[in-house]
C-alpha cells in the first residue's frame, strides 16, 4: 500500500429519529461503511456494539425515549483508523465521572445494567465524552482496524 493510499480519507454522516427500531439500522449502516477497511468479524462486532451503546444512550437517556429527538452519527476513516461520533441534543449529563463508573445507571427501573460506557471504553482504542446539561451529549471514539489482508501478508 502506498503512503498516499494509507492516509486516504473518507467520511459519512447519518441522522435519524430517536426510535429504538433505528438502533439496528444505525449499527448495520456504520458496519457497512467500515467494511471498506476489510475488518475482521470481531472488529466489526465490536464496532456494532459501541454504536448500539451510544445510540441507545441518546434515545433512552438523552431524549427520554421522545421520538422527536434526533441522533447524529459521523464516521470518518483516515488510513486504517475509524473515528465515530454519536451526538444528541438531549438532556446532557450532570456528573460525567459518576456516569462513567461501571454498573452506574440512572435508570435501574428500566433494567439497565450501567455497562454502556465501560463497553465503549473497552472495545475502542480511544473514547471521549463531552456533555452539557440541558444541551446534549457527544461521544467520540477511535479504533485502528487491523485489516484481514494485513494478517495474511
Amino acid at each position: 500500500m502506498s503512503k498516499e493510499k494509507a492516509m486516504e480519507r473518507n467520511f459519512m454522516t447519518l441522522q435519524f429519529a430517536a426510535k429504538s427500531e433505528n438502533e439496528s439500522f444505525a449499527r448495520v449502516t456504520v458496519a457497512a461503511f467500515i467494511s471498506q477497511l476489510d475488518p475482521t468479524m470481531d472488529e466489526l462486532s465490536d464496532l456494532k456494539t459501541v454504536v448500539s451503546e451510544a445510540v441507545t444512550n441518546s434515545i433512552i437517556h438523552g431524549y427520554d425515549s421522545d421520538p422527536e429527538g434526533i441522533v447524529t452519527i459521523t464516521a470518518e476513516i483516515v488510513g486504517d483508523t475509524v473515528t465515530l461520533t454519536v451526538e444528541d441534543r438531549g438532556r446532557g449529563i450532570e456528573d460525567l465521572e459518576l456516569a462513567k463508573q461501571p454498573l452506574y445507571t440512572s435508570k435501574p427501573e428500566l433494567e439497565r445494567s450501567g455497562m454502556g460506557f465501560t463497553i465503549m471504553e473497552n472495545f475502542m482504542d480511544e473514547f471521549e465524552v463531552s456533555s452539557e446539561p440541558g444541551s446534549g451529549t457527544s461521544i467520540k471514539m477511535k479504533k485502528r482496524i487491523e485489516s484481514k489482508k494485513a494478517l495474511y501478508n
Binding site: 448500539s52 441507545t56 439497565r112 454502556g116 463497553i119
Partner: peptide, 13 residues
C-alpha cells in the same frame, strides 16, 4: 447474532 448492554439488563433481571 448480536447483543449489547440491553441484553445484560435482561439477563441480570
Amino acid at each position: 447474532q448480536f447483543m449489547d448492554s440491553s441484553g445484560l439488563g435482561v439477563i441480570l433481571g
